[in-house]
């Protein structure tokens, strides 16, 4: 068991750095989680993170990558609706890395 420190508060994470208690997630936590992944959070990153959180709120699942790219393309413009764009933002993959930063459940590794 590991933990991260967010604004003076300790939050537990699992071996791979996913938050154990998703309810603890804050924007500050996202910044700490991103830093641990060497991801420098820009507005473009936040767009995707916020999109993922909204999607999860509405549907209770993290979208599959192809669903994410299609939905992002529709919402944020076709130039952003492709996996190349998303992999540039999150080099280890929008499913794993962006979900971790967004405080969504760890993907089971299904497919």
């Amino acid at each position: 068991m590991s933990s991260i420190e967010v604004a003076g508060k300790m939050m537990e994470t699992d071996e791979e750095g996913y938050l154990l208690n998703l309810a603890e997630w804050t924007e500050d936590a996202a910044k700490v989680l991103a830093a641990a992944e060497n991801v420098n959070m820009t507005d473009a990153h936040w767009e995707v993170i916020n999109f993922l959180r909204e999607y999860y709120d509405e549907y209770q699942i993290a979208p599959a990558v192809r669903v994410l790219t299609k939905a992002i393309g529709k919402k944020l413009g076709p130039e952003k609706g492709n996996s190349k764009y998303l992999y540039e933002l999150f080099p280890y993959g929008p499913a794993k890395q962006a979900c971790k930063i967004a405080g969504l459940p760890k993907p089971t590794g299904c497919v």
Binding site: E58, Y59, Q60, I61, P63, A64, V67, K70, A71
Partner: peptide
């Protein structure tokens, strides 16, 4: 338990 009924609404996206 987790309420997964909202997930059915994502089926269209899939």
């Amino acid at each position: 338990m987790k309420n997964f009924s909202p997930t059915y609404k994502a089926l269209g996206d899939y």
